[in-house]
């Protein structure tokens, strides 16, 4: 996944409006390149606010991938067949890879992975709120692939054309790998829907719990989305939250029909005049509450990341100490 609510403000975002005092000539060149749909590369001059927004967005994206390993990882040990186990490990591993590509992209902006992890671990940096919900039955794994990854792809494909070169290139890589994620999820659900009543009930239960959360994943409505306009202007964000959400719903409804599940929204119906599906009210209070840290799994997710990092300290130290010793030995030999 898992871009989505990328314009969730965090502490670094608050200073976004700071006026850069760079020479206007550089600024003009930058703006001109953006207007011409050109790419910005790490060494190019860029406004401080652009840099900060990018670091915030890319690191949020990277954190989402890493935290996103946990809800699905929850079912690796219990996958009901060896084939599904292998698929799930490969998928969760891919998410780790995506996090890694994205951290690397953000590092080109002069922020180290340490600093980004520090932001995540201290709770300052955000990640996609969808991962703060529990995975309660095996079908959740399929539903996350189908709906959550499906929603993410909507977001990610446009980012392949993002104005910042390293981010756009990372996203090309991510999207290439991501295409298997949604398909494997949908296919796993198809098999379950053709199975026993219990299996079908598992799928419907998972859809019921995840549908609304997925719609919220696209972020607040455009009217309430303070960063969107600037992000669009800079080519960091390509399509608005509401447009993406609509696109996702329009694409998903027919898929749900093929699958044979009911999407839990009585207001969901085709609007001939708009040429789109209408849908009901998203519970934004619940969304913000989760973003603020009060969702069902926020504390577990974060604490687990912090623990993995802290428990791994001695391992990282060991590799470093060994590399240093080897270097010293080589120097001694040369002397």
């Amino acid at each position: 996944m898992y871009t989505q609510a990328m314009d969730i403000p965090d502490d670094s975002g608050k200073k976004l409006a700071a006026v850069s005092n760079a020479p206007s000539e550089q600024e003009a060149a930058f703006e001109a390149r953006i207007d011409a749909d050109g790419r910005i590369e790490p060494q190019d001059w860029m406004p401080e606010a652009y840099r900060k927004t990018l670091v915030r967005q890319i690191s949020q994206h990277a954190h989402s991938e890493i935290v996103g390993m946990l809800p699905e990882g929850n079912w690796i040990s219990r996958a009901p067949s060896l084939k599904r186990k292998a698929i799930l490990i490969a998928k969760v591993q891919d998410e780790g890879g995506h996090g890694l590509y994205l951290y690397s992209a953000a590092e080109t902006l002069g922020t180290s992975r340490d600093q980004m992890l520090e932001g995540l671990h201290s709770g300052k940096a955000k990640y996609s709120s969808i991962f703060n919900y529990p995975t309660l039955n095996w079908a959740d794994v399929g539903v996350i692939g189908w709906l959550v990854d499906g929603a993410a792809i909507m977001n990610q494909v446009p980012l392949c054309r993002c104005s910042y070169g390293p981010y756009a290139r990372a996203m090309v890589r991510v999207c290439k790998e991501e295409s298997f994620h949604q398909r494997q999820g949908y296919e796993a659900l198809l098999v379950m829907m053709k199975g026993t009543d219990e299996q079908r009930a598992m799928v419907q239960d998972a859809v019921n719990r995840y549908w609304w959360k997925c719609l919220a994943m696209f972020g607040p409505p455009d009217a309430d989305s303070p960063h969107s306009a600037q992000g669009m202007r800079w080519g960091i964000k390509r399509i608005s939250n509401d447009d993406l959400r609509q696109k996702f719903i329009d694409a998903t409804v027919p898929q749900a029909k093929v699958l044979g599940v009911t999407l839990p929204d009585p207001a969901l119906k085709w609007n001939e005049a708009r040429g789109h599906y209408d849908y009901g009210q998203i519970d934004w209070a619940e969304f913000w509450n989760t973003v603020e840290g009060n969702g069902p799994c926020n504390k577990e997710r974060l604490a687990t990341r912090v623990k993995a990092h802290n428990d791994g300290q001695w391992v990282r130290d060991a590799a470093q100490a060994y590399a240093r010793k080897q270097k010293e030995r080589a120097l001694k030999e040369a002397a």
Partner: peptide, 12 residues
């Protein structure tokens, strides 16, 4: 709780 992480692991 916040230990230096990759500080010494260089980037390649």
């Amino acid at each position: 709780m916040n230990t230096p992480a990759l500080k010494d692991w260089p980037l390649w």
